[in-house]
Design a protein around this nucleic acid. Structure first.
Lengths: 331, 331
DNA sequence: CTGAAAGCGCTTACAG
DNA sequence: CTGAAAGCGCTTACAG
């Protein structure tokens, strides 16, 4: 007799217990209409055979298992764990499962992953770089909630982050502390590429009556070493700079380092303000002043919106997360 | 006409395109044996109806979608993201999906989550506190790989971390630097509760001929503030201590702070060595010297072991991850 | 190249 | 309390 490869089915349990399939079903699902003796006999057989009902057969007949796909760039990026955590918790509360997938920032891969997920889940939540048409083609009617996207910019569900408000809070805070030469670190690319963050910074600079020439914007990738390099470059090119506004905490941590290395006191002779509100901001010295994004709320709102799209719930809520300045030590 | 609630089925597409179900199946699955014209017509109808084949029906008939469940304590704990990331990446390479679930350290919940996952996945990977019998009762024959568990201590699959080797590397390093008064921070509980970490530390202390009385072990929960408190307590109770060996990086970061606050130079008058090798160790000042655990490898090995248990692969590999000391600035 | 039949493993009425 | 029948939505041989 060879080792049993095949998984036990309801039929195996039924014949082993000497009953019909629907009696097995009753026992497994804790329904009434079954004598305790029979139930025990069936449950015993099930245990003995390591019987687990097929999720496919079950899902096919009772249409109520909900699984959502969560697509992030990279879980190892400190921005995502809390968001993912919130999505998991909120989904679990509703009895939903969450399949997680990571694009690693690869735009081509993104749509492949969407394809895979679309086959296996009931809704998709995530960071998608592709445009509406491309997404639509791949999700084929699957409910979608885009993270960190202006709801007006897409026909899919979306949860926005009010970057402009966050930026305003940061810059106002710096201006209130007397700063007039505030450089921004972290625009994504060259000037002719649309960049919400850079635009928000410039708008606020104008709004507050600052001199744009004294508030340069420096491109910078999203990492500590890149922040370090960019900050060093800015402080060299614009030595009169007294404050650095970074568009992510990772960049800001690098900026603190660079400033210190350049002989600046932080925040005394060079304030640094970050953006994100990651826990790691509390570990550096001085602790990072930053615009905190409530990523837990972001995840919650996204799952709520999925629920609405799935028609289980109609409570409306503005799908915008407004960041809040968190003043710690660096600025 | 009310809005269409029901999802389109293969039958809907078939009648809309004027063909039979199996022709739809052929078109959707890109099989041959279909004329281009028919295929286009079917695909058009499918697109129009937002048709996505039911994953349940499909899974039922072709038994080959593999989904694994990953159970962690809490994704927001900095120890888990990289592990989760590795599991996702390794699973994706095999074309597997990953459902993630978090226990939040709640032992009761743990088994509930196992129940849920056991219904929906083909194998389970994770941190489980429950004993073999309890796990067995809930997984009912599901392949299981336990993380950070000695393979000899369980009849399930397991990937171990050689904590003793890591501890030895750390303590030998400190002894090599001249330290004789080395306190350990982070035993889980009182002396009569089994604790691999504490035992390893004491064994190494003895092995290296240190005086156990000069190498006390202080209990401490896994967080920065707790590390701070514990370190302060130790430095007060044993002022001759010149090195702190923390059993996690979070604790170690707190220890650095406490030491600095107590007027110690780190590492000059008080060395600090952590355990885990988290990225955040590079952000603190001085950068944390730590015993690095290759969590990426841990995740890979776990998924490999799942593959073996599912019988898809038989390449054997020792399921042990040996940590490596990473000397940075703090010790 | 296309369709009629059977079956994947369950659950849900419906009889008895 | 228990079982025979039908069906969930697909795919896989098998005819034609």
């Amino acid at each position: 007799m060879t080792a049993e490869r095949r998984r036990a089915t309801i039929e195996d349990v039924a014949s082993s217990a000497g009953v019909s399939r629907q009696t097995v079903s009753r026992a497994m699902n804790g329904k009434g209409e079954i004598s305790p003796a029979t139930r025990d006999r069936v449950l015993d057989a099930a245990r003995r055979l390591n019987y687990r009902p097929s999720r496919f057969a079950r899902g096919l007949v009772r249409q109520q298992v909900t699984t959502i796909g969560l697509l992030v760039t990279d879980l190892a990026n400190p921005y995502f764990p809390q968001l993912a955590s919130a999505v998991l918790a909120t989904a679990e509360q509703r009895g939903w499962q969450v399949v997680v997938s990571a694009t690693h920032g690869d735009a081509d891969r993104e749509l492949d992953l969407v394809d895979n997920l679309a086959d296996q889940v009931d809704a998709l939540v995530g960071y998608l770089a592709a445009d509406d048409d491309a997404i639509a083609e791949h999700v084929r009617g699957l409910p979608v909630v885009l993270l960190q996207r202006d709801p007006d910019s897409t026909r899919f569900g979306a949860v926005a982050i009010d970057l402009e408000s966050g930026t305003r809070q940061a810059v106002e805070h710096l201006v209130g502390a007397g700063h007039r030469d505030i450089a921004m670190l972290g625009s994504e690319g060259p000037d002719d590429v649309a960049d919400v963050r850079r635009d928000a910074f410039r708008a606020v600079v104008r709004e507050l009556g600052l001199d744009p020439a004294r508030c340069p914007v420096h491109p910078c990738a999203q990492s500590v070493p890149d922040g370090e390099r960019a900050a060093a470059a800015v402080l060299t090119a614009y030595p009169e700079t007294t404050a650095l506004f970074a568009y992510s905490d990772l960049i800001a941590v690098g900026a603190i380092r660079a400033a210190v290395r350049e002989g600046r006191q932080v925040p005394g002779s060079c304030a640094v303000v970050g953006f994100d509100g990651l826990p790691l901001g509390e570990l550096v010295t001085p602790a990072l002043t930053t615009v905190h994004i409530d990523t837990w709320r972001l995840g919650e709102l996204a799952v709520d919106q999925v629920a609405r799209q799935l028609g289980e719930d109609n409570s409306g809520a503005a799908a915008v997360v407004v960041p809040r300045l968190l003043v710690r030590g660096s600025g």
